[in-house]
Nucleic acid binder design. Structure first.
Length: 246
RNA sequence: CGGCUUCCUUC
């Protein structure tokens, strides 16, 4: 069953829903019993590939298999799927069901909700989630702040984004490469190139790795702004820094 | 140890 789980996880990453369904049937034919993790992996591939209705059906029917009750992973995956499908009421319903079933939401659950609402610009809902999180005694982590920074950046809410960055520092956490790449993306989108530079300076000063993603972000942002010379410089710098283009 | 969240990769 571990073999099947590993294979399903790979198929989820590769977004191969048909192959994943075939594999699930093969597992049954091998007289193996599916597990909650197997169903979760299956739900992930389905929601990732716009087979949301099928995912809900499997989410409902998994309970018919012995020992296959949804757990914190399953609920979080379904909440993410609902948000990506734009079904926020459904996401909330599944969260409530999770609570009723006695499955404790984790930081993953809350971060997923924040990202889902944030992408859609539902900032009131984010506030609600943060309050809820507090009431469950779950403490925000770097990913929480990164998520807030990302979603505010996506919506060009630069002051709110910078407030989230301050929140991260205020909690005694350090930015990671995802934080800084998100800042680069937002500043680039807003045309705040001086601020982009202060982020890259910061990365150099504190020895953050300038990854392929970092350079891809810089190239994309300058490209969108029509700053072709900057694009060229960034690409050449990748080569001199030994960062491989992907 | 293996399945859930945040950065570029069709906007």
């Amino acid at each position: 069953i571990s073999t099947y789980l590993q294979l399903l996880t790979m198929l989820a990453k590769a977004r191969q829903p048909a192959e994943a369904s075939n594999l699930f049937n093969a597992l049954l034919q091998d007289n193996l019993r599916p597990t909650t993790a197997i169903f979760t992996a299956l739900l992930i591939v389905l929601t990732k590939t716009n087979h949301f209705t099928k995912a809900v059906k499997d989410f409902e029917s998994m309970r018919l298999y012995e020992g296959c009750l949804p757990d914190k992973y399953t609920y979080t995956a379904m909440i993410k799927g609902c948000c990506e499908a734009g079904l926020y009421d459904q996401a909330r319903k599944i969260f409530n069901e999770m609570i009723v079933e006695g499955v404790k939401p984790t930081i993953f659950t809350f971060n997923t909700l924040i990202f889902g609402y944030g992408k859609a610009g539902r900032f009131r809902d984010i506030e609600r989630v943060l309050t809820l999180m507090d009431s469950y005694g779950v403490k925000s982590d770097t990913v929480t702040w990164n998520t807030l920074i990302r979603v505010f950046g996506l919506h060009n809410r630069i002051p709110a984004m910078e407030q989230a960055y301050e929140g991260l520092l205020g909690q005694g956490l350090l930015p990671d490469v995802v934080t800084l790449n998100s800042l680069l993306s937002a500043y680039g989108k807003a045309g705040l190139f001086e601020k982009m530079h202060s982020v890259t300076d910061y990365m150099v000063r504190y020895s953050y790795p300038m990854t392929t993603v970092t350079y891809n972000t810089i190239i994309k942002m300058y490209g969108m702004a029509g700053e072709i010379d900057q694009v060229d410089m960034a690409f050449k710098r990748m080569e001199t820094e030994g960062v491989k283009p992907n």
